[in-house]
Amino acid sequence: MDIIKRLALIISCLTFLSACGTTTASPTAASPTVQATLAASTLVVGANRLPIGLVVDGTPINEPGAKVLLRFFYLDGTDAEKSKVAGESAATYFGQGLPVAVYVTYPNFPRAGAWGVEVEATLPNQAPSISRLRLEVLASDPTPALGSPAIDVETPTAKTNPDLSTLTSDLQPNPALYQQSVDEALKSGKPTAILFATPGFCKTATCGPSVNVISGLQKTYGERMNFIHVEVYQYPFGESAMANPPRLAPAMGAWRLQSEPWLFLVGADGLIQYKYEGGITVEELTPVVEDMLKRS
């Protein structure tokens, strides 16, 4: 009887639905324990950027050689749909300059509801590990959606606040990121990159690197495109970050943002073409920026 119970338990654990909502791994004896984590707070019907982090024995990693494959299942569907692979895609490594890597894919979810994703991660010279995550896909986007008009809002600039320490918590700011208000940039007839981030008080440790990425892109493409950094908190930043609740900058409220960092790439027509939650890299953004400039 004990053998039958154990066999039933093993079969149960291998069933995809019983694993959804948790993150599990199935390494070989010689392999480290690899778990996948979701590095995004919002997924919606339609096009998405889905960043996945990898944790090895409790520590997030930045491994360029990791191979990550995702398989998607629609858990709110019929019994057949729950077990049928609805889509499969390989994730691309983007960890250059970040404290930990994200492995990114760009799924298009056709329906709202609960989705499962099976993450197969293979580290160099190791056997594959399988993790399973449960995703909640929303019917509508609580943040400014792709294809929607960028929100016209006034943000502080160096023109009215020459002391950059009142505009950003970045200790070595690029002054070019604080010359235009968001509303001014949206009327300029140029594409615009708007980064909401707080280098000094970031909860994810990716704000500073993300500001550095935007600063570098500004130096390359600044004649043809606007680049703006918006601080997440009101000045004084430390007091606002520690307040309960935290005092967010007015632009954060106008853009309906509750996490950081967020990057929005807006076309010359004022419509949001791309959006990124979490850490960003030059490698991921450069092809996108160049494509936007060709089309503008």
Rank of each mutant, 00 (worst) to 15 (best):
I194H: 09
L9P: 00
V104Q: 03
E290R: 04
L38H: 01
K82D: 03
A121K: 03
N212I: 14
P175T: 09
K67Q: 14
L177C: 07
E63H: 09
F109M: 03
S41H: 13
R111K: 13
T105D: 09
E277W: 10
L43S: 00
S83T: 11
T15H: 13
L98P: 03
V119R: 01
G77M: 11
G279T: 05
Y93I: 14
L54C: 07
C202D: 09
F16I: 15
V119A: 09
F16C: 04
D57Q: 14
A90W: 11
F94D: 07
T155L: 05
I194W: 08
E118Q: 13
P64K: 08
A268E: 09
E120W: 03
L164E: 10
G21Y: 08
T37L: 07
L146P: 08
G87L: 06
P236W: 05
L138I: 00
L265E: 11
A47G: 14
I194S: 08
E88T: 13
K219P: 01
L69E: 15
S129C: 15
V117F: 04
P199G: 02
R256H: 14
K159L: 09
E81M: 13
P162H: 14
S131E: 07
A36E: 03
E260V: 03
I214S: 11
D170I: 01
P175G: 09
L7R: 10
S140N: 15
L293G: 01
S140C: 00
N244Y: 12
L135W: 00
A114T: 14
R295N: 04
D183Y: 13
T78Y: 02
I61W: 06
K190S: 10
P209L: 03
T155W: 00
G222K: 00
S31G: 09
E184W: 03
N62R: 09
W262H: 15
D269K: 01
V289T: 01
P236D: 05
S215L: 06
L123H: 02
V102Y: 04
C207M: 09
F196G: 07
F73Q: 05
K294G: 03
I61R: 14
K219H: 06
S165V: 15
P64I: 10
A205H: 14
S148Y: 07
G189C: 06
A8H: 07
S296R: 05
P51K: 00
G216D: 07
I214R: 04
A91T: 10
L217I: 03
L135K: 00
D2I: 15
T192D: 11
E81G: 09
K203Q: 11
L14Q: 06
R295P: 00
V282E: 11
A90I: 02
L171A: 13
L17F: 08
R247A: 12
V137M: 00
T78D: 05
D141E: 11
Y106L: 12
M252F: 12
G46W: 07
A112M: 01
E283H: 11
T23L: 03
G65E: 08
P156I: 02
A185E: 01
L171F: 14
A185G: 14
Q172I: 10
R49Y: 02
A205K: 13
A185W: 02
I10D: 02
Y235S: 06
A205M: 08
G116H: 01
V102H: 14
T42A: 02
V282Q: 15
R111W: 13
A158L: 13
K159H: 05
L186V: 00
G113A: 04
V100I: 11
L164K: 10
S148W: 12
D152T: 08
